[in-house]
C-alpha cells in the first residue's frame, strides 16, 4: 500500500514537472519585461486577454510578459503588484475591481519608478494612464435592443428585469447593469428592476440564484448578467424550469444578456431557439492598448504620472443584428478560437 502511494506521488510529481517544463520558455533575450495582473484567471475572458497580452508584447516589442493572477481578491492583487515590483519589471498593466486598491497600486508602482496602466475600473487618484473599454454605450444598446425585441413579441407584457452583478464593484453599475437598465427604460419607461443579486461571477451560483428569483417573481422576462459565466448560469436555471426558449429568434419566455462575448456565450446566442441572445466585449484591442500604453511609458513617449484615457470599443453581438461570420471573426481574433461557430452551434442544439 505504501509503495503504491509512493508510486502515485512520484507520478504526480513527474507529471507536474513535465507540465511545468512545457511551460518553460526558451532562453531568449528580451528587451523588456512587463507584468500583467488580470482580475481573475478563472474567466475565459481574462485568460484570452492574458494570452493576447503575452503574444502581442513579444511580437511587437520583443518584451516578455509576466502574468500574476489577481484571483478577484484585493489582497492577492496587491501582493501581485508588490511581487512584480520586486521582480524589477519595466512596467505593469493592472485590471482590478477596486478603485481604491488600484490607486494604492499606482502609488506603489510610482514610488518604485515603475510605469503602470489600469484597465476598466478608474482608480481614485487618476495619476496614471488608463484603458477604458467603452462598455456603457454597448450596455445601453443591449438593454434597448432586448426590450425592443420583447415588446415586439409581447407588447402587453410589462418588462421585468433581474440582474446578476459582482459584489462590491461600483463602476459596474455605470458601465454594465445601470447602463443596461437605462437602455431598457428608453424603450419601456415602465420597466421594473425586480432584483439585482451577486452571482459571484459563477455559473453554478448564478443558476441557484436565478431559480430563486424566478420563483419569487415568475414574471421576470429580461435577465442581464455582468459576465457570460453568470448569464450561462441564468440560462441553465431557465432551462431547468422549462423556460430559456425562443421560437426562431422570437422571445417566448425571457431574453438573457451577458457580457464578454466569449465563445461559450456566442454558441448559445446563435442558437435560434435559445433565450440567451446578447453580449458585448473585446479582448484584442484592450490587451494591445495595455501593452502599447505601457511600452509608450517605458520609451518615454508619454508621461507615466498623467491620467489619460484610452478608449476601446466593446462591440455588441446579438442574434438579430450580428452575422455568424462577424461572430466567427470576433472569436478568432479575440479568443484564439479555432473551431467553426456554425458547426458548434449546430452541435450544441443537439
Amino acid at each position: 500500500m505504501k509503495k503504491l502511494l509512493l508510486t502515485v506521488l512520484v507520478l504526480c510529481m513527474l507529471a507536474g514537472t513535465v507540465f511545468a517544463g512545457g511551460e518553460q520558455e526558451d532562453a531568449k533575450e528580451y528587451d523588456f519585461v512587463i507584468g500583467k495582473i488580470p482580475y481573475t484567471f478563472e474567466h475565459a475572458y481574462h485568460q484570452a486577454i492574458c494570452r493576447e497580452f503575452t503574444e502581442y508584447s513579444e511580437k511587437m516589442y520583443n518584451t516578455k510578459a509576466v502574468i500574476i493572477d489577481g484571483e478577484s481578491s484585493a489582497e492577492a492583487t496587491l501582493a501581485a503588484v508588490e511581487n512584480l515590483i520586486s521582480q524589477g519589471v519595466d512596467g505593469i498593466a493592472l485590471h482590478c475591481g477596486d478603485a481604491g486598491l488600484s490607486a494604492k497600486a499606482i502609488d506603489m508602482a510610482h514610488a518604485a519608478g515603475v510605469p503602470i496602466v489600469t484597465t476598466l475600473i478608474r482608480p481614485e487618484n487618476m495619476t496614471a494612464p488608463h484603458i477604458q473599454p467603452q462598455e456603457t454605450p454597448s450596455s445601453i444598446y443591449m438593454g434597448a435592443e432586448a426590450a425592443r425585441q420583447w415588446k415586439a413579441a409581447h407588447p402587453n407584457t410589462p418588462i421585468k428585469v433581474a440582474m446578476l452583478n459582482f459584489g462590491g464593484i461600483e463602476q459596474v453599475w455605470e458601465m454594465r447593469t445601470g447602463a443596461f437598465l437605462e437602455g431598457v427604460k428608453s424603450v419601456d419607461p415602465n420597466a421594473e428592476l425586480v432584483t439585482m443579486l451577486n452571482g459571484q461571477g459563477s455559473t453554478v451560483k448564478s443558476m441557484e440564484i436565478i431559480l430563486d428569483v424566478l420563483q419569487g417573481d415568475p414574471g421576470v422576462n429580461l435577465i442581464f448578467a455582468a459576465n457570460d459565466e453568470m448569464a450561462l448560469g441564468a440560462l441553465a436555471a431557465c432551462e431547468q424550469l422549462g423556460r430559456g426558449k425562443m421560437d426562431n429568434g422570437v422571445p417566448l419566455t425571457e431574453i438573457i444578456a451577458g457580457l464578454d462575448a466569449s465563445s461559450a456565450a456566442l454558441v448559445k446566442i446563435f442558437d435560434p431557439n435559445c433565450s440567451f441572445k446578447l453580449t458585448h466585449g473585446a479582448v484584442k484591442d484592450i490587451a494591445r492598448a495595455e501593452v502599447d500604453t505601457v511600452m509608450a511609458m517605458i520609451n518615454g513617449e508619454i508621461p507615466m504620472d498623467k491620467y489619460t484615457e484610452t478608449r476601446v470599443l466593446s462591440p455588441t453581438f446579438d442574434y438579430w443584428n450580428t452575422s455568424l461570420a462577424e461572430a466567427q471573426r470576433h472569436l478568432e481574433i479575440n479568443f484564439f478560437y479555432e473551431g467553426d461557430l456554425e458547426a458548434d452551434v449546430k452541435a450544441a442544439m443537439k
Binding site: F19, F41, E42, H43, A44, Q47, T203, E229, L232, E239, Q240, S263, A264, V267, G339, D344, A347, A348, M349, K350
Partner: peptide
Amino acid sequence: LIARWDGGTNIMLGLPGAYTRLGR
C-alpha cells in the same frame, strides 16, 4: 490543469447534447 489541457478555463463548448440529460 484538465481545463487547461482542454484549452480554456471551463469546459462547455463541444459537449455532446446528451451531456445534460442526466442532471436535468
